[in-house]
């Protein structure tokens, strides 16, 4: 894991990073809505995250074709980039989950209120 590689990856794959963070946020919403106690919602959240990862792996690969020599000239291959991306994303997901667990009461109140406003 390297911070320099993270910086370069963010510069080049910015849209994919944002996509992964959005999927992580969506996943966390399910956890906040009592996902831990309801196995169905919990499984669905994990499923969304896995689908998100497989989509982003495909998109990374498409982007990688045009930037392959940029990374290979630094001695970095596709597998290393992918491994790093998934690792960073996992760290971000765990971070969001931890923060949301700490602020769970607040977030669940806000989310339920927001959902009720939408309903009416």
């Amino acid at each position: 894991m390297s911070i320099a590689l993270l910086k370069k990856s963010i510069t080049i794959y910015k849209p994919i990073f944002l996509w992964n963070i959005l999927v992580s946020l969506l996943t966390v919403v399910f956890f906040i809505l009592n996902g831990f106690s309801q196995s169905g919602i919990y499984s669905f959240a994990i499923f969304i995250k896995l689908i998100g990862w497989s989509f982003s792996a495909g998109i990374y690969f498409m982007f990688y074709q045009s930037t392959a020599y940029f990374f290979k000239n630094q001695g970095i291959g596709f597998k290393k980039i992918m491994a790093n991306m998934v690792l960073y994303d996992l760290i971000i997901l765990i971070g969001i989950l931890m923060i949301s667990t700490i602020c769970r009461d607040f977030l669940s109140t806000v989310l339920i209120n927001l959902l009720q406003i939408e309903k009416y």
Partner: peptide
């Protein structure tokens, strides 16, 4: 098995390879 893994080999391909969003200093 692959020269680039040595980190001691640079290659200029026929096509453009530096992403557009990078500046010259970077």
């Amino acid at each position: 098995s692959k020269g680039y893994l040595s980190k001691n080999l640079s290659y200029l391909p026929q096509d453009k390879f530096i992403p557009d969003q990078i500046n010259v200093l970077q």
